[in-house]
Design a protein around this nucleic acid. Structure first.
Lengths: 181, 181
DNA sequence: ACCTTTTAATAAACACGTTGACTATTAAGA
DNA sequence: TCTTAATAGTCAACGTGTTTATTAAAAGGT
């Protein structure tokens, strides 16, 4: 029974349905569920490259900034892009460094900062992964009509704003075009 | 710049934008971001009760089934409802049991099964949490118009189906009305 | 009846996320 | 200048998720 269909039910039944499954709760549970399913799907796809979703996120950020002439990025700054704490970045960079995909370099102008830089291996790997992953995601999203995708993006933008996403509405910031305001 | 606005740009600029930020990728990143922000938001709200989102998920499932006369649920079955592995359920139930919110009981008819049951403390706690949490989520979702919520639910349902969510379209199954097909 | 396959739960090892505490360094203000 | 506050990174402890392997019990086929 879709929510739309409940609209056509007698008031008594609608009330019963609404009482046990209020629409906002249903909405939130669906958002969380799609997020986790999408995460699993991407993790699964990337397992053939021995990479995880968050790891590719880091490669994507660093790759994008590299293409814009900024080589080497502080851990905290990467964390802001990914909406993740700097403590978490320490572990992420540890594992990427262990796998030879990034290096930590000291910043000569500020000795607190460690700049993370992609290795040649990572540049090659990311370039090899990107097209296929994009193709894969495009196929997944193809279940939605063009107008539906526009609307979805718009709604998600509103939710990001109400949820206080710092990366929303940064013109050419770390958000990489994810902004849907 | 919204996706809609890019529609009105000269083809050359649109191509540049599309090349670095293809819409399907933007869509996926937004879905993942909203999922994680929502998760943090709920975690934060529930911290005052010393509970986590997934823990309340278990209470919600067990509470719902209890109200329908089914007291005690196998670990695996809870896992199916939450789209989570049974290995994960072991740890979840461990912590809930440690906190005195559930008990494991042996099933007399099938000695492989442990049935998880809510304690009185959990019933009381869940009843106390539910209204406020629902109110909170309702306020969050209030940024969306009614028609927008309907459309969002519809799109999320399509995504859940293409992502192979087992709980989709189970009439009165463990999905608790989350189905938006 | 016996053997094989499936199923339920657990455990170990790992990735990822949090908070809170800590060190080192830089920035700011009296 | 000297004290104080803010910032970058790390670490420890924890919760949640995965996969893989193991044990025990149930189910099925010959």
């Amino acid at each position: 029974m879709t929510l739309a269909e409940t609209r056509q039910l007698p008031a008594r039944i609608l009330n019963d349905f609404e009482r046990s499954h209020p629409q906002p709760l249903v909405l939130v549970l669906n958002l969380l569920r799609v997020g986790s399913l999408l995460d699993k799907e991407i993790t699964d796809y990337l397992s053939r490259y021995d990479l995880t979703g968050p790891q590719v996120g880091v490669l994507r950020i660093l790759g994008h900034y590299y293409e814009h002439g900024r080589d080497g990025m502080p851990l905290s700054e990467i964390g802001e892009c990914l909406a993740v704490t700097k403590a978490n970045m320490t572990g992420m960079v540890d594992r990427l460094e262990r796998d030879g995909l990034v290096v930590r370099e000291s910043d000569p102008t500020d000795r607190r900062i460690k700049r993370v830089r992609l290795t040649p291996k990572a540049h090659e790997l990311h370039g090899r992964i990107k097209p296929g992953l994009l193709q894969y995601l495009t196929e997944l999203m193809a279940v939605l009509e063009a107008s539906e995708k526009e609307q979805l993006l718009d709604s998600l933008g509103k939710l990001r704003r109400v949820l206080g996403d710092a990366a929303v509405s940064e013109p050419d910031g770390c958000d990489l075009g994810v902004v849907a305001q």
